[in-house]
Design a protein around this nucleic acid. Sequence first.
DNA 1: GTTAGCACTCTAAACATCAGAGTGCTAATT
DNA 2: AATTAGCACTCTGATGTTTAGAGTGCTAAC
Lengths: 345, 345
Amino acid sequence: MELSERQKKLLAAIVERYIATGEPVGSKTLVDALGMPVSPATVRNEMAALTAKGLLEQPHTSAGRVPSGAGYRYYVDHLMKQYDLSPVEKRILDAKLRTASGDSRQVLETASSLLAELTHCAAVSTTPSDASAVVRRVELVPIGARTAMVVVLTSSGLIKSRVCRTDSEITVDMAETFYNLVNDNFLGKPTAAVTVAKIQTLAVSLGEKALLMTPLLVTLAQLAATTERTQMLLEGQSNLLGYREYAQNAFELMDFLRHAEPLDRVFSETPHAPNGEPSVVIGRENPYRELQNSSMIFGKYAIAGHESGTLGLIGPTRMDYARLIPSLQYLTEIVGKVLSDNVEE
Amino acid sequence: MELSERQKKLLAAIVERYIATGEPVGSKTLVDALGMPVSPATVRNEMAALTAKGLLEQPHTSAGRVPSGAGYRYYVDHLMKQYDLSPVEKRILDAKLRTASGDSRQVLETASSLLAELTHCAAVSTTPSDASAVVRRVELVPIGARTAMVVVLTSSGLIKSRVCRTDSEITVDMAETFYNLVNDNFLGKPTAAVTVAKIQTLAVSLGEKALLMTPLLVTLAQLAATTERTQMLLEGQSNLLGYREYAQNAFELMDFLRHAEPLDRVFSETPHAPNGEPSVVIGRENPYRELQNSSMIFGKYAIAGHESGTLGLIGPTRMDYARLIPSLQYLTEIVGKVLSDNVEE
DNA sequence: GTTAGCACTCTAAACATCAGAGTGCTAATT
DNA sequence: AATTAGCACTCTGATGTTTAGAGTGCTAAC
């Protein structure tokens, strides 16, 4: 798309003003705001041209212009000057995130909250998952006579634990049997291989011990499943209610956001931006109708170099891309760093 | 408050009809719906009496009547016939909750979701907490050369774990020092006593080992803190948007719900209902302005006989008390049961 | 104690009016 | 050729007006 310098300047100004005020932008306002050495009439001509190119829209004949989806897209791709977070802000975010370190879920929760607060949008994050992960280690921690905690450690650095109650006492002998079983059948295998089905076949060969082992093994399978299944955390939904554009149909969007799968699909199906930059999906570009009045910005965080999960935010199409994109990017970076700390190098 | 039988019948009918439709109830509608052997005029007289007693209100001169706060209260306390869940529904809830067993947080999350879905209200739950709990057991699980998981078990049955990374290798010797420290200083002490301050005084007497021990001990303190701090889980906020009464000011309420402390205050300050029945706080009875257009139903669940946390729901004053109270009650019961399973008797 | 009848009140919807903001076009200007 | 002043035109949103309908309270009769 060919635009003259002046058109670019105008488009940027219109987008930025509309983002700031939420009101359609008229020619006069624009001249006043920009202090341009041209008259409103000239600006009107240019605006008509931008409208013809599909970059602007008119809500109705006699209102100012509003950026179209394509308009935002052009702005994001070519015009916007990103506003990075200040060093102070960065340090604050760092500190808040570090205090949650040690528990990956809490890190993500904190990150989502911070993101929501920072951006006044809804923030989502997915728990780390790595389909290629294998079981690296399993531990059985006695808690009580009939209670033990099963701990699973995957090659991707995830650590999950869960309490299991058995019907009989957990003896040293039993623990040994358990470790042997795990060593022989699961260690080094993909987490996806630790299934209840597999356990049932094992149980057959165990004879009388099967009854004792099953609860422990089932717990193990449940844990393996949770390392596989990405969970989604959502924060700051209520932020959306503050925007005019959601006054009517907030329910639809918020209801949509409750379900993890569709969002996850958007995350995985959007072609990655090259160098770790966040992806931006604007309005109608969204595959789901419920999102078509919204924009999303999201990026993958990497644990120990492997892309593991996603951090994203959802807000009105009229969001402050120039500020929010760098904010999201910074948070994905430090979330990755903090979570990598848990991983044995 | 003295009401004739007919007045009671009418009040109940008005409350139930208003709950069902959300429209003010008029005399004619009422006669039609109830098939009463009296004329609308008679009903009007009775309604005027109920209004004089403060049990009904008129939105404006010529509209039907709407129950007042006192009206709902009278209904809940004296008139309502509770609708218990069907055995089938109960079994389904049971099953869904059991699958989450083993991880108390997940149990509560599931319970809140189920409650929200069941009631079309917002559902909250607080994680178990017991101020009188003492540290019963601490375990150190090696995860990698420099990584270990610290596990804390309290007398109230809570089990929390967290990964800790140290600056040096974790040797058998170090583990022994750690266990000794824990035995001597923390075991049997209230969880509140495990503070960073205490750890700092300990560190002084440790000499060169202090540097190695500190990360482990700090993690221990963080864990102890999480057993103390009640967390709050909120689900189904978006359900509220479906109600007319929240069309305007949903933001205010949802923003209020994000903060755990005030809600927790309501939970703890409301005088308990006697025999484990849920408490009901209706409209203006709420201490917080933000809740005064809403009602809450909540109850405590008990782990191994001790009241530990709260399950609650928040919705419009015009909620279906007769159905929701038993639903909430049932859920608190089974949440207690499921969570008690983790506790060694 | 109950009820028919009726005047009265208030709301919500439908309709009309009008100022204001912004446009597009034309013709004049640089 | 680009810019601009001028102007007629359009559409919205705020405001006012009207009207049908629902529901009430009161009175007088049953």
